[in-house]
């Protein structure tokens, strides 16, 4: 399989860039989900689920840092979460404004942001999975196959939540 290692040597730079980019996007996704949770603390399901599934992206960040090493990358294995003090301030703000219906609109905007970020990550996983197959990099392929479904679940969740809450926010508010 020498041609494969040769090819990896030649194309490794591009793959590295793709891994680095996805590492950044997954980091963004952690922040987007935690931010959503903090802003919407009074929407309990959103608060808890967003934090649970931020855990998936945290795991993805660490997996990407690991597979990145083979491509000469030195990526941080820990997602850079927001400082928790700021998070708590937002949670408090959410609790103070929880009696007013207006926060519904920022909720829709935040869900939209999560969905778009996850959609970007999903496409990046697609690119990595295709690349891994072409390069016969089974480790990278394995990571993509394990992580990508979770990205899709994050996307579907944001979509479902949006579908569930938009009529109440837009019509009855």
């Amino acid at each position: 399989m020498t041609w494969v290692s040769a090819l990896r040597g030649v194309k490794g730079n591009k793959v590295g860039m793709a891994i680095e980019e996805l590492h950044r996007v997954e980091n963004d996704l952690v922040i987007a989900l935690l931010n959503l949770a903090d802003q919407q603390k009074v929407d309990h399901e959103i608060f808890h689920v967003a934090r649970d599934i931020a855990g998936w992206s945290r795991q993805h960040v660490s997996e990407l840092a690991r597979v990145g090493q083979a491509y000469g990358l030195d990526l941080d294995a820990d997602a850079d979460d927001e400082p928790s003090l700021l998070g708590r301030v937002k949670q408090k703000g959410s609790e103070l404004t929880g009696r007013f219906h207006e926060p519904g609109l920022p909720l829709l905007a935040d869900l939209r942001h999560v969905h778009r970020t996850a959609a970007g990550a999903s496409l990046d996983w697609e690119i990595l999975a295709q690349t891994a197959q072409a390069l016969k990099d089974t480790d990278l392929l394995d990571v993509a196959q394990r992580c990508h479904p979770e990205t899709l679940r994050q996307m579907r969740w944001a979509n479902a939540k949006l579908k569930e809450t938009s009529a109440q926010v837009m019509v009855t508010g």
Partner: peptide, 20 residues
Amino acid sequence: HYSAPTPLMQMMRYVEDGSI
């Protein structure tokens, strides 16, 4: 039927935010 039925705890949230 445009979305799943609203479960109780979510209804309570809508009571809280004044939309129910």
